[in-house]
């Protein structure tokens, strides 16, 4: 794995912002503007030969490291039971909110690589890697559908998983778990109608962050 890191540093140079080796897996962070040239290099350089794109996905870092369950203050009545709704406010100015994560596989060298890139802007834009790995086509459509990340140069960037006429990008952290609309059959109109959602999300187990040194860095 160290060899892979050396190869990458040597060939990609300044395109890499950072790299790390974690649980035996190599992750490199690449400038969004350089993703196409980095992709071509990763695929075509014989020492790297990442001929297959295993996976591509979006990640929304809006709520990263934020817990629902704050029990710092004790009051006269004990700990507050306040649990936030798990819905976070969209901070327009948050930098590096969205990431695109590529998982690459080299069959000839039998090794994997994770490439992470933070597209910038509102909406976030990044060059498509479909011309490099044709298998990225649907993955990019999915990342667009669920996170609203735009892939420049994608041949057919349409929604893929959500309903026809769906609004919003459901996997963003500020999109409520229960959604915005629900459907029901209206017997009077004789058809299925959309209406604002009538259920409310109930947090049964709040998100808690604890640091347990037993499992760190193993």
């Amino acid at each position: 794995m160290d060899m892979l890191l050396n190869d990458l540093r040597e060939r990609l140079g300044t395109a890499i912002i950072s790299d790390r080796l974690e649980t035996g897996q190599v992750t490199i962070e690449v400038r969004a503007a350089a993703i196409s040239e980095v992709g071509l290099m990763l695929r075509d350089d014989t020492a790297l030969a990442f001929t297959q794109l295993t996976d591509l996905c979006g990640v929304d870092y809006l709520a990263y490291g934020k817990a629902d369950w704050e029990t710092r203050d004790t009051t006269r009545t004990g700990f507050s039971r306040g649990v936030s709704q798990g819905v976070y406010v969209d901070t327009e100015d948050m930098e590096d909110r969205f990431a695109v994560v590529y998982h690459l596989l080299s069959l000839s060298h039998n090794r994997r690589l994770r490439v992470r890139s933070f597209p910038s802007g509102q909406p976030p834009r990044i060059a498509s890697v479909t011309p490099i790995w044709p298998g990225a086509n649907w993955f990019e459509r999915e990342a667009f559908d669920l996170f609203g990340i735009l892939f420049d140069g994608h041949p057919d960037l349409r929604r893929i998983l959500t309903d026809y006429g769906f609004r919003g990008h459901p996997f963003r952290k500020d999109f409520p778990l229960e959604g915005d609309v629900e459907v029901r059959y209206d017997p009077e109109e004789g058809r299925v109608v959309y209406q604002p959602v009538s259920i409310k999300n109930r947090v049964l187990v709040p998100k808690t962050i604890r640091h347990d040194n037993r499992y760190v860095g193993k």
Binding site: G65, A67, K207, I209
Partner: peptide, 23 residues
């Protein structure tokens, strides 16, 4: 494949399922 991002919480921060059939 399962791509799991954890921020140290008791829930996954992001879970991506890499389904072979999708590809």
């Amino acid at each position: 494949g399962i791509y799991l991002v954890s921020d140290g919480a008791n829930k996954p921060y992001r879970l991506k399922i890499r389904a072979p059939g999708f590809v």
